[in-house]
Computed example of a mutant assay.
Amino acid sequence: MRQRTRARVLAAAEEEFTEVGYVAATVARIAARAGVTVQSIYSSWGSKSALFRAYLESAIAPGTERVDFSGAISPGHPREVVSQIAHLFRAVAERSGPAWRLYRDAAAVDPEIAADWQQLQMLRRGTFDILLQSVSDRDLRVARPVAVDSAWAIASPDMYELLVERATYTLDAFEKWVGETIAAAVLRVVQE
């Protein structure tokens, strides 16, 4: 599938999934919205659940075939590294908050999506492991696995939903909270 057509299908999928949710969404309506055949969607993605995953990935990292955050953080002072992580997470959350919520909700009713959601959570955890590689063990106040788990929990889709969508934090306030909370949880010395 050509890139333009793929982008149209993913935009149509976003509209369909956002409007009616995963369970009620149909590949036929997505195809009609995108101006393609149902068969072309199945040929490219294989299933509605695979298309749903592609929609989530396109929300996280638009315009790419794969989500990859290696190299996203520049080495520096541990506090600066954590600030970069908070900024990166804010950008991802801003783009993909609704998609995360739809995926989580679909996981509650579809075993295939539930298994994929669990895998995605482990991939997200692995991403925090990669992002925290720029912080040396001597700068951590906790063991590295605990630091990774802490960042993974603090900078999570659930925290984004709670603080931005429910408690009405601005994105700037949310980014600041994520950075300060991760720093307080994992860094040996937090310097202003």
Rank of each mutant, 00 (worst) to 15 (best):
M1G: 14
Q3K: 13
T5H: 09
R8D: 07
V9A: 08
V9S: 05
L10P: 01
A11I: 03
A13P: 01
E15L: 10
E15W: 05
E15D: 07
E16W: 00
F17D: 02
F17V: 07
T18Y: 03
V20R: 06
V20A: 06
G21Y: 03
V23L: 14
A25N: 00
A25E: 00
V27G: 10
V27D: 10
A28S: 15
A28N: 12
R29N: 13
I30Q: 01
A31H: 07
A31V: 12
A32H: 10
G35L: 15
V36S: 13
V38I: 13
V38D: 14
Q39C: 15
I41A: 06
W45D: 02
W45G: 01
G46C: 06
S49K: 07
L51K: 01
L51C: 05
R53N: 10
L56Y: 02
L56W: 06
L56E: 01
L56G: 01
S58R: 08
A61H: 09
P62A: 12
P62M: 06
P62T: 09
G63N: 07
T64K: 09
V67I: 11
V67M: 06
F69P: 05
G76D: 04
P78C: 12
R79G: 00
V81Y: 01
S83F: 00
Q84G: 05
Q84F: 01
R90F: 05
V92C: 02
E94P: 03
S96F: 00
G97F: 01
P98F: 00
A99H: 01
R101N: 03
R101C: 02
R101A: 06
L102G: 01
Y103N: 02
R104C: 03
R104A: 05
A106M: 04
A107G: 11
A108C: 13
A108D: 08
D110P: 05
P111C: 07
E112V: 08
A114D: 10
Q119K: 12
L120R: 11
M122H: 14
M122N: 13
R124M: 09
R125P: 08
G126R: 14
G126A: 15
G126P: 04
G126L: 15
T127P: 03
F128T: 11
D129G: 08
D129I: 07
L131G: 13
L132H: 12
Q133D: 14
S134K: 07
S136V: 12
S136D: 10
D137V: 15
L140K: 04
R141W: 09
V142T: 11
V142Q: 11
V146F: 15
A147Q: 04
D149C: 09
D149S: 13
S150C: 14
S150P: 10
W152N: 15
I154H: 03
I154Q: 01
S156V: 09
S156L: 11
M159Y: 08
Y160W: 14
L162C: 15
V164G: 05
V164I: 09
E165C: 08
A167N: 10
T168Y: 13
T168C: 09
T168D: 12
Y169M: 11
L171K: 04
L171Q: 05
A173T: 02
E175I: 02
E175N: 07
E175K: 02
K176E: 11
E180F: 03
E180G: 07
T181Q: 09
I182W: 05
A184F: 06
R188I: 04
V189Y: 05
E192H: 03
E192I: 02
